[in-house]
Structure formats: structure tokens, C-alpha cells
Amino acid sequence: MQKLIIGIAASLFSTIALAGDDTRVVLDDPLKTGIFSYHQKLILGDPARIRFDDRVVVKAPASAEDSLNVPVLVDATAIPNVKRIVMFVDYGPIPKILTFYPEKADAKLSFRFKIDQATPVRAAVETRDGAWHVGHTIIDAAGGGCTAPALAYASDDWEEELGKVHASIWPDRGRVRMVVDHPMDTGLAGDIPVFIIENLQLDDSSGTKLARIELHEPVNEDPAFTLYFAKGKLKDQIRIHGRDNNGNEIDAIARAPVTQ
């Protein structure tokens, strides 16, 4: 079994090496991590127009206090017409964290992820004209976040919590905050297969799509997001729905706090 894995890993590696050798746009990575061009090709699909851009702001603590819950805020609101934001790390067993489609939301998102080692975190922002803008921050970490079993399994009732959504909206401040209970198993912890939420979508009460997030394994256990909207765009409630890779449905209605 181990040999097989090594074999697969080796063949995968050689594919990557070939793939990364020739990107259509050759960038001078300010962080010089040596791996960015691979991600440029394999995660972003080797775009014809791509550059590093200071208008993509990625904020996170300089050091990960809890490698299972590293908070990140990406803000690309200085760039008009954002189609999607792809978040990934340079170093980690599963580099891609999530893709955010802002739709009616601001091009800004807060989330948490599991970090496996010290690494740059990159935000690649695609605009509607197909151009990519890349920003980053660097996070130091003790590591191990991706290979530890979910904490949920320490309790017997995790299945009852599965898919529960803790959330509120603040229409006057254009803000949605949500925490969705889910183990988000990476498949890298012993004998536990991949078990993750794949898709979360926000709709307004008339069913119009407000925003969508595609999640991958590195998103933290019990994914937590803040989404940002222009004032007046959010009404009194929104629908949050999605599903995980085992077909479990998530469906919730978030409202403004009663005190407002």
C-alpha cells in the first residue's frame, strides 16, 4: 500500500514538475517560494493574464496560535468587477482552501483554515474580463493542522450537530456571519475519509443568489465566514444552504439580531 502511494506521489510529482515548467505568463514571485508557478498552472489553470497586485489585501495573524483555526480576511474591494477569489497556500498537503464567488456581495471574505506548516497564503482574484490579480500574506505555524482528526469526534453527539448553522445578519452594516457545524475531514488523518462541505450559497428571500463559496479540505472544522455587502443590499433575512460530499443538506434562515 505504502509503495503504491509513493508510486502515485512520484508520478504526480513528475507531472507537476513538467506542468510547472512553462507558465504562459512568467511572474517574478516577490516571496520566491519556488512553487508558485505550479499553483499558477494547476490551481488557476495557467491564465493568460495574471500579475501580483497590492490591491488584493490578505490579512492574518503573523503566527498561527491554533493551527486548526487560522483566521484570514481577504479584501479585493479595490478591484472592480470581481468574478471569483481563489484562496490557496504555497506549502501544504492540500493547497487549495476555497473559491469565493461574490455575486452580489463585496469582494471581501473572512474565513478560517487548518494550516500544516509555515506558508504564504495567496488570494488570486479573477475579474470578469479574465484577468487575475494575486495578493498574499505569510503565516508562521507549528503545523499539523491538516493531519489531526476533527475535534468533533471527541464527543458522541457530533452527528446531531452536523450541518447546524449559527448565524446572524446585520443589514444596516452589510454583514453576514455564519458558523456551520461540520467535521471537515481532510482525509489525511488516519482511516478517516474525506468528509467536507463542498458548497455554501446565500440567497435573498426572493431566491436571488447573493454569493457562493466552494469549500475544500483545508477549511476549518465548523467553517466560519463573514460576508460583506453594500448597505441596503441585505433585507431582513437570508437563506444559507449547501451540501457536503456525503449528500447531507444544509439549510438555514439567518435574520437580523432582535436587538437591532
Partner: peptide, 21 residues
């Protein structure tokens, strides 16, 4: 800053209301 990392996730679960349909 370390305390935010330690305490924030649990406080969110305590304070944010459950919203499932």
C-alpha cells in the same frame, strides 16, 4: 491576540443563534 484565537470560536457558538430550517 492569542486570547482571540483561544476564546473566539466557542463564544461564537454560544452567542450566534441557531438558524436551521
Amino acid at each position: 491576540q492569542r486570547s482571540v484565537a483561544h476564546l473566539y470560536p466557542d463564544l461564537e457558538r454560544e452567542i450566534l443563534p441557531l438558524t436551521n430550517r
